[in-house]
Design a protein around this nucleic acid. Structure first.
Lengths: 225, 225
DNA sequence: TAGATTGTTGCGTAGAGTGGAACACATGCC
DNA sequence: GGCATGTGTTCCACTCTACGCAACAATCTA
């Protein structure tokens, strides 16, 4: 098998992966150590990335992510067309439950928060759009696992009642419920979730939230082309 | 001069550029013709892009942009930290003027709408975040030209009163005013603009909007670190 | 001034990337 | 059904790119 891939491209992309919330700007040597590439190599790769607007170099010679990413990212999200229909649903869930509502899709081996509406409560589960969370924990994680891979355990959990619940699994203080959004053709689109502080989401409150999420997810799936 | 760049990387990036609002999904051959690359080549490049989540392949074998772009795009925008301070300002401008307010940064040789708050009027200048517009026309375009390149003409225009006005320049029915956001260190960050239908923005309304934009831009610059 | 650190450039060579053809696999059309 | 058309993948040989490394600038530090 003749390795159907392009190495230098993957190196370039791994440079972009080196940036994070904690390290939004990097020097060339930082990138080199982070990625394990040679400085000269990084220098040439970044030149191309910069030329296309995927990186930009500040006056202090540090690299930052470039505007092209935001442009294409917006394009990606728009291509869902879900946004317009999902946002109102999230807002309604927030109004109904008082907790934070969000929508996740799969990104590699993690889940990506595509949309979210935060609770208005002072104590709440706050999360940024674009954040990545693990797949192995949390209600939405289980839903995505079940549909994206053939995760038997997660699928069994879903089969029970069509939704997932997690209490203090990923974060000991947070409970969440999630349900899959599936359209009329059976296509899976993502996971709808409500999450909040464990102490506020008692058994009955959690069950009510679960029902509301389930209802909202089904509604979304039905309304989709 | 030994061409400090990596060709295959640039090819891969140009594949991403092939996607647009009009063509959010492409087949392999479409990409090949669009970019002028060979199918076999595209096949290998897309494999790498897909592996890193920059593209994804649907069930119908068509390519779409991938979630990694949204994640990194969100990261890029967050790295500004401007968002939190800019949004309220935009909202206030909308409230004051009744028109659409937006914030632009430079992206290559164009301008990129990073934030915008749409007017609530039924007839309004609507624009999506992430949209790209030309640099050579429109008030915000002139501001960006003046600061990003040493565009003498645009700079002279700014020197007059610290802002730019354009009436029916890019679009015959739209007028706009824009001012630069410059922090205490003299660093230029972007262009703040208000735009709306020409007929509603009479001379006096336009002048009032200009003053408000100018004021808001100065306030933003002052409040920035 | 000496020394450390960061980034760029030059160069030879290995080997990656490429073009092209040949091959599978669907669809459509008579 | 058979034949044509279009799409995507795989194979192979050749070329030239991309890479490692060293040497070189260019800044900081002290």
């Amino acid at each position: 098998m003749p390795e159907t891939r392009v190495e230098s491209v993957e190196k370039a992309l791994s440079i972009l992966e080196a940036f994070s919330n904690e390290q939004p700007s990097l020097t060339l040597t930082e990138i080199a150590t982070e990625t394990g590439l040679y400085k000269s190599n990084v220098s040439r790769l970044t030149a191309s990335l910069e030329r296309y607007g995927y990186l930009k170099r500040e006056a202090d010679r540090r690299f930052r992510l470039g505007p092209a990413l935001w442009r294409l990212g917006a394009l990606y999200r728009r291509s869902f067309e879900l946004g317009e229909s999902i946002r109102p649903v999230l807002r309604q869930l927030v109004a109904e439950t008082g907790e934070t509502a969000s929508f996740y899709v799969l990104d590699q081996d993690e889940r990506l928060c595509l949309y979210r509406e935060n609770s208005t409560e002072p104590v709440r589960h706050h999360l940024d759009e674009g954040a990545r969370l693990p797949l192995h924990a949390g209600a939405a994680g289980h839903v995505l696992s079940a549909y994206s891979f053939q995760d038997a355990k997660a699928k069994a959990r879903l089969a029970q009642d069509g939704s997932c619940v997690s209490t203090g699994e990923r974060n000991p203080h947070i409970a969440s419920v999630a349900a899959p959004v599936v359209d009329a053709t059976g296509q899976f689109h993502g996971a709808l979730a409500v999450s909040g502080p464990l102490q506020r989401l008692s058994d009955t409150a959690l069950e009510m939230a679960r029902l509301r999420v389930l209802l909202a997810a089904q509604g979304l799936g039905r309304d989709m082309l």
